[in-house]
Structure formats: structure tokens, C-alpha cells
Nucleic acid binder design. Sequence first.
DNA 1: AGAGCTTTTGGACCTAGCAT
DNA 2: ATGCTAGGTCCAAAAGCTCT
Length: 328
Amino acid sequence: MQSLVLPVDTQSRQNPEAGPSSSSSPDIIPESILTHGPPPPLPYYPSHKALLEALQAWSITHSFALITTKSYLHRTNQRALFSCSCADRYQPKLARGKTLNREKPKTKRTECLYRVQALNLNTAQDPKWTYISPTGPTSVHNHPPLNPKSHAILRAIQRRLHPGIDVMIEQLLREGLPPRQIVKQVDAKFPQCHISTNDVNNFKSLKFVKAGEESTTSPVGAVESQDEESGIFTNYFGGDDDEHNTSVVFCLNTAEIPTNGNKRGIQDGEEQPSKRTPADESNRRLEEANARVKDAKKMVERAAAILRAREAEARAIAAEVKAWSQGV
DNA sequence: AGAGCTTTTGGACCTAGCAT
DNA sequence: ATGCTAGGTCCAAAAGCTCT
């Protein structure tokens, strides 16, 4: 883990954390190469996706992210390769005749060799996914720890692990808070997620527009009760059905979706409690906001409890996994 | 002028097919 | 088993417009 053979042709690469100067020689080893121990033993998972998500949860605690780079059939068993998100080199995907507009593509790729082999020990009908711990050159990174501020995949994993982030953004948006205020509040509660006003706006356009499209086909309105809302997150965290637990379903009242003719619909569409003083109204909204934050806290605590339980389960079968991988 | 909002762009993820 | 390539999809970031 200490000595490293470092990459090869780095001319076409940039060290993503080196800053804009990049005047240093391309063969210079970054000062703080990312090093960490092997992944923790994990329980068996019902799909390679579920295993990937578990390993991703571990990887972000070591400031890198794993992604699937290969999935193939080995004899009768399905296998997959999970590589560091910095693996591979930058390969722009452009249509014929098109050129890259940006002079300096914002690639994060460093041809990092770190990868984990995943495999299904059982059949496709009764899947049982686990992994083989990396060794040799594939067990080391060629880049420093990644900064979530400039690596969207790290932020995305954080948000998957902390659904309270999206809940909070959605609630604050509903309250009509401006993006800057939302960023402040979310950052105070989830400093690791590093959200920006752009994140908030993207969240809004993506989720609200999607909800708006769905609501045109289905008249179902908002999440009616807290039970229903928390049920969504129970599914998100605890469900084995990974087709449905990777994204949170947002159902909003169509009345809350801004229309073309009313781009600031949330403000303009608000009720006007004319008899109340502004101070009363502010206090009421503050109380509501506090109550919602409390609910979000509970959800996050429950999620953490599930995570701890899975880790305990993982430790229990560590020896079994190890024995199997040595026998391969 | 600055903040908010919508739309567009293009980087990154993911998978599959074929080659070695 | 792994490398190479192509292409579809997703979504963060940028660009530009609107509103206060």
C-alpha cells in the first residue's frame, strides 16, 4: 500500500485536485495519494446493484467512489467489476462531425487501477452477490482523496445514503424558501453533502417537473400522511427490491407546480392569511419547519440504525466470505 | 444589479458487442 | 478475463431570460 507504481501516460490527464495551474510535470506523483485498507466484509446481496451500493457507502468514507465498469457471464455465474470512478481515461462521446466546445474538459479520470471483483455465487434465479478483495496494483489508487465539491458521484452517493437531504430540500422548497437559504440550512445539517443553489434548482426542476408530468396522467396528489412519507424511505433503505429503492418518489400537489404563465407560482399561489400579522405568520411557518426537520431527523436516525444492522450482519459472515475467496 | 428560474449543454455513467 | 469502442441515458453545470 505504501509503494506505488504510477501511471503511465499522464499527458492527456489532469490531476483533478491539483487546481487550475497544472503546470507541474505530468509524471509528478500527487502529494497525498489516496490509501485505505480493504473493503469491509459484507453480507450477500440480492443483486450486483445492491452490492455496489453497499460498497459505494463504504467507499465514500474513504473519499472515493466505485462504479460498475464491467458486467459479464463467467461460466454459469454472473460477475462484475467495480472500479474507482477515476478509472479509465477521458473519452469524449461526440456525434460524427461534432467537436468539443470546451477547450479543457472537466474530466475526473486518472486511469486509476483500483477495482473490486463482484460475483454471484448462486444462480440468476436465486442470486447471492459478494466480492473478492482487491490485491496488488488493483488495490491502490493513483490519485488523492476526492473532494465531494467537485465530484458529483460522491454527492450523489451521500444523498442516497442520507435521504433526509432531499426531504429537507423538498420541504424547504414547499415553504417557499429561496435557494440560498435552503443551501444554508441543508449545509448546516448535512455539511458532507456540499449542495449548491444549482443543486437546489436542479432538484426543483427535475422533481417538480417530473411530478408535474406524472400528475397529468394520475390525479394523485401530495404525500398525505407522515406514515406514507416515511414508508417511502423505509422502502428506500430496507427494501431488497432494488428496482424501487434507488429513487424517492415525489408526489406533489399540482397546485404547487409553477406554470409557464406563472414562473414564480409558489410565491404567487400562496394563501394570503390577511387577518394575521406578518410576525404571526412567520412564527407559524417556523414551527412547521421545525416539526418537519424533526421528522426528517427521525428518518435519518432510522436509516443509520439499518446501516448499523447491516454492518453487524456483514461482520458475522466475514469468515465465510474470506474462506470462499481463498478457495476460488 | 442581483437573485430566481428555465432551458440547454455536455461530462459521466452504464451496458453491450466484439476482439484479443 | 480483459480491452476497446459505440451509443443511450442521466443529471450537474452553464447560459440566458425574467423578475424584484
